[in-house]
């Protein structure tokens, strides 16, 4: 039997991303969960169950303050965010008061990002006749104007996301705010290929995941990549971290939905919903 804290050899890329997100969390922090971001929630819960037992959650769904947790769910999220809430607020309070004051940690998923960390979540293509209309930026355009430590994640690193020029900028990148408040913006990005910072004002590769080469990362990035002189290989998860993710935090594998696409994603979503609702309906009948 392998040791709990030994590096795992059997792990998936989504699990490695969750572990990297967990490593960014400091104990005692307030963390925010955005809409449809299960990979991030799994990372937060991993931090909560390992090195950061005192973090507090503020969820976009529910708008509550919560210290307790529950395994990831799709149709039962309110049982956690409302059922286990210790206090609640509303979205106007969150936007106008809490976010600018407490500056909680949140991981945003950009549809497009350029080298300076400007992001787009509104359209792909020309704004007036878009190739693809996306849901919108939520509050990214608001918080990037003042937040100095923005974190991002991209589950599928490609030239579709990392572009020379963002079609419609709905999130401010490095240091382009008003003269008296030049927000320093993004500080951390995790993708399925590596980890990045913005140390010199441009996206910079600081670690490649095991088995990934710098050339592969560059080939999937639509602009010349900066490379940190002390480039590392990302440390793999431990056996215990993988066990927690698979057995305790996300037994249904909801985090996988962020990595899948097309028919595979559809099939996985059906399977998860059938397992969640089947279990519930089974109890009722």
């Amino acid at each position: 039997m392998q040791g709990l804290n030994q590096p795992a050899t059997d792990y998936t890329i989504d699990e490695l991303m969750c572990v990297c997100i967990a490593r960014q969390i400091e104990d005692g922090e307030l963390v925010v969960q955005g809409i449809a971001t299960p990979l991030v929630v799994a990372g937060y819960l991993l931090a909560r169950l390992t090195h950061a037992p005192n973090i507090a959650f503020a969820s976009a769904i529910g708008q509550t303050f919560c210290r307790d947790w529950a395994p990831l769910s799709i149709t039962q999220v309110e049982a956690l965010w409302l059922g286990k809430a210790m206090g609640r607020f509303d979205f106007a309070q969150a936007v106008c008061e809490l976010l600018p004051t407490y500056r909680p940690k949140e991981f945003f998923r950009p549809a497009q990002m350029d080298a300076q960390g400007n992001t787009g979540n509104v359209v792909i293509g020309d704004y007036s006749s878009p190739k693809l209309r996306l849901p919108g930026c939520g509050g990214i355009a608001d918080v990037t104007a003042y937040e100095e430590r923005m974190c991002f994640y991209v589950p599928r690193h490609s030239r579709v996301t990392f572009v020379e020029r963002v079609d419609f900028v709905s999130g401010l990148g490095v240091g382009a705010g008003p003269a008296d408040r030049p927000a320093t913006g993004p500080i951390y990005l995790i993708t399925d290929l590596g980890q990045f910072d913005f140390a010199n004002g441009r996206m910079r590769l600081i670690s490649v995941h095991p088995g990934v080469t710098v050339e592969q990362v560059q080939a999937k990035t639509g602009f010349p990549l900066q490379i940190a002189p002390d480039l590392q290989e990302t440390a793999p998860p431990t056996n215990e971290e993988v066990r927690l993710l698979r057995e305790v935090i996300d037994p249904l594998g909801i985090r996988n939905l962020e990595r899948l696409s097309g028919a595979q994603r559809r099939a996985k979503l059906h399977e998860i919903i059938e397992r969640e609702q089947g279990a519930r309906l089974g109890k009722l009948q």
């Binding site: 106008c96 704004y127 355009a141 608001d142 104007a145 003042y146 999130g171 401010l172 008003p178 408040r181």
Partner: peptide, 12 residues
């Protein structure tokens, strides 16, 4: 109106 810090540097 109400003033806010957001939107600067975006296409909004």
């Amino acid at each position: 109106f109400m003033p806010g810090q957001g939107w600067f540097g975006t296409d909004l």
